[in-house]
Write a protein that binds this DNA or RNA. Structure first.
Lengths: 193, 193
DNA sequence: CCCGTTCTGTCCCGATCGGTCAAGGACGAG
DNA sequence: CTCGTCCTTGACCGATCGGGACAGAACGGG
């Protein structure tokens, strides 16, 4: 018994997300969000509350999608191949991102880790999710003899995660595709040898 | 034959830098900079031009200091110890930074890589400087038999650089001191073994 | 068909944004 | 001491900020 929403809430959040990804939290104004989503300022405000909540929704959606993408990546392969596949995926995404928009997790923590505990926690959760999948794959790899038996799979997983975050960061700092790929293969060599 | 500057230009830039490091470019207003530096708005503008130039000066100073600190780190040690010392240094700094202020290179590229080629170039230069020092140390380590002779020192240097950037990023995303240290030692094991 | 409810667009607000400028003060050269 | 030069201060600018108020449109239950 009321007028229904004309817009897709999820679509609006997604549009807001791309805006935030490009210009950050402080750098994105409400009018930018209005333009990005196509909604009126009133609708935006009515649906989500304030700017902070819109960002939180956008960031949460990004992390949720990242989690799903991680699951998908590790569903397609197992063992060492899965771990290296993840690294290759990150490297490829970084190289493809010629505009240097970059990963939202990095951007959000870089900008807001000082002031928002919520952002830190959400980011931590998503990264630990990756870590878990990596550790699982590496443990399997160890059983199969693909990886030396003396190393702790959990430590190796964290190391690989750090490498992937590093590749992302270096990509945004102007490192070339060749340089990034050389990091990826060096990591593969160090693990697989 | 004129009234001299009452303030130290470098001190003002340094004060502005800490403000930018905390709240980013867009998140730091001119009044914030006035408060941080203690200068009047007019003096700031007169001395540096606009906000963008102040940031550029601050970021440039940060990178220059980082370069100097890198030289100092690699002057104190050589070979594998120097490379691992650098990694330990980054890890320690990240752990000590409980407020999650973080490295300005990461922050600046995260926020401005999309819009400012200058930031990307300055960041790239500073990171390549680290890479060069790492590569040099690792080549020496290889001669001394500390590192396997089959690996390319340049690739290993990039890998280590990526790990260090990853540690920085993970620290800002809430990773604990133990977790970060475990990454550091895993990297050491992988290299030294 | 009608009314209550919710959504939407627009106008408005005080605050603050980045940036400018005129007035006056402080200093050094002569 | 005087004067020219540069610096500092603080008021001020238009624009935009995030947020809110509100009238009216669109819809569903009765």
């Amino acid at each position: 018994m009321a007028r229904p929403r004309k817009f897709e809430e999820e679509a609006a959040v997604a549009a807001a997300r791309t805006a935030f990804r490009r210009t950050g939290y402080a750098g994105t104004s409400l009018s930018d969000l209005v333009e990005a989503t196509g909604l009126g300022k009133g609708s935006l405000y009515n649906a989500f509350g304030d700017k902070e909540e819109i960002f939180e929704r956008a960031f949460d959606g990004y992390c949720a999608e990242a989690d799903a993408a991680t699951d998908e990546t590790f569903r397609r392969a197992a063992g060492l191949a899965a771990a290296l596949g993840y690294l290759s995926q990150v490297t490829g995404d970084t190289i493809a991102d010629r505009e240097h928009v970059g990963c939202m997790i990095n951007k959000a923590t870089a900008e807001l880790a000082v002031s928002s505990e919520a952002v830190v926690e959400r980011a931590s959760k998503t990264l630990h999710h990756v870590e878990d999948r990596l550790a699982c794959s590496l443990a399997r790899a160890q059983e199969d003899g693909e990886v030396g038996a003396d190393a702790d799979p959990r430590d190796l997983a964290r190391l690989l995660l750090a490498v992937s975050r590093g590749i992302e960061a270096l990509g945004k700092a102007g490192y070339s595709a060749e340089e990034l790929r050389s990091i990826e293969s060096a990591a593969a060599r160090v693990l697989g040898g």
